[in-house]
Design a protein around this nucleic acid. Structure first.
Lengths: 224, 224
DNA sequence: GTCATAGTTATCGTATACGATTTCGTACTC
DNA sequence: GAGTACGAAATCGTATACGATAACTATGAC
């Protein structure tokens, strides 16, 4: 009865493949062969097909008819697009959540942000990124509009699959990020109006994107 | 060779079911039975399954394990959520498109808007809604971010499946809408900054939503 | 008369099998 | 030696078949 909770085989396959993509076992460009995955998971190809199509809908994999599926996210412009979209969606989600964020949530977010500050010293980019997600989760999880919330989750998923850690590439950005987090919390605490919060949350992410772009231009990503 | 373009059976099934939902053959709440659809289309259930799952990912249908799929959109709050999400996404898409909108596009949009104005007299809500989509398409189709553009399309699809025509329910809104369109065009022509355009586009849709809510509250939709 | 329970039916979930398409390698020709 | 055409292998796409699950119905007891 312990396996009742896992749901259908399709569900298992979906979770399994997604996990492998996010954790990096399947790197971008990796060729996903239905039969092989099916064998690995001990299921038939049909549920795997469904799982792949679901992942395609989320943008985690690219699927070509009669050819097969590959893990997407190779394209650096893809990162740009995702970040821009997320800046808009997350900004809106945070603004909509703000009135529903209580003192305990603020405290929790502040605790996470403190951990992030500590993290700066030893500089563990993976851990820093995980904490970053925790922090923002507190801010947008109260969003009353389930569609928007869903879009935010999809955005984070895509980012996770593209890069385990943004901050590995833009180390200088981490310090500013922590400061902006505190500013954001103060805005929410002081019941700032929705527009102000939305703008702040959006710029917070845009700034990370800009930092990444500046870094890329500087030459470290000279290859097209 | 004429059928090569239609693609796979899954594709056909997807298009067929989607069309039936949008055109209203399958109304919200309609029970989608795999076997029946498969028979109607002359294919097996497997491609139909895939089609249904794709539609689920788009939010057009709701799917419950071991129970089946139903056309979603029954819930009036669903309409609210979709409109709110679309106001944000469409606002952003329009703002991002603005710099890329040329004089010919403006002229085309203005022509569509003129048709809408004519439409007000005979008041054909279905036609009015179709023109409305045409108008906004001109404004956001140049959006350079494909993800955002995709989200806008999904939003319109959902709306189409929920209601063939919003304006049937909020007739008073149509006139204002036409005026706001013209204002929006002038903003774009005068190269207004992105924030201004985004706010205007967003409010344009929010206003329709507000009008709908006021109407609903007034009692015409007393049945739950 | 109402509630609970067992049996039936409808529908979904998955496995297996085979046909269709693409891709890659090899041989042949220019 | 380079290019093209043919063929084989790999992989996807779909049909069919059967097992699993949940909704419905009828029957019985209280």
């Amino acid at each position: 009865m312990t396996e009742t909770a896992v749901g259908s085989k399709s569900e298992q396959a979906y979770a399994a493949v997604k996990a492998r993509i996010v954790e990096g076992t399947y790197t971008p460009g990796y060729r996903l062969v239905l039969a092989k995955i099916a064998e690995d998971l001990g299921v038939s190809v049909v549920p795997v097909r469904e799982a792949i199509r679901r992942l395609e809908a989320e943008g985690l994999v690219k699927f070509e008819r009669n050819v097969g599926a590959t893990v997407s996210g190779i394209d650096p412009t893809e990162y740009l697009y995702t970040m821009q979209t997320l800046s808009i969606i997350e900004g809106a989600a945070t603004a909509l959540s703000a009135p529903l964020i209580g003192a305990v949530d603020i405290a929790r977010a502040r605790a996470v942000n403190a951990e992030m500050r500590d993290c700066l010293e030893h500089f563990d980019p993976v851990r820093f990124t995980a904490l970053n997600q925790d922090f923002h989760s507190v801010l947008f999880e109260h969003c009353p509009n389930p569609h928007i919330l869903d879009l935010v989750h999809r955005g984070w998923n895509r980012l996770a699959s593209i890069r385990a850690s943004t901050f590995r590439f833009v180390p200088g950005r981490a310090q500013e990020s922590v400061k902006e987090h505190e500013a954001l919390l103060q805005l929410i605490e002081s019941n700032a109006d929705a527009d102000t919060i939305e703008q702040a949350a959006r710029r917070h992410r845009s700034a990370t994107l800009d930092a990444y772009l500046a870094q890329s231009k500087a030459g470290s990503v000279s290859a097209h």
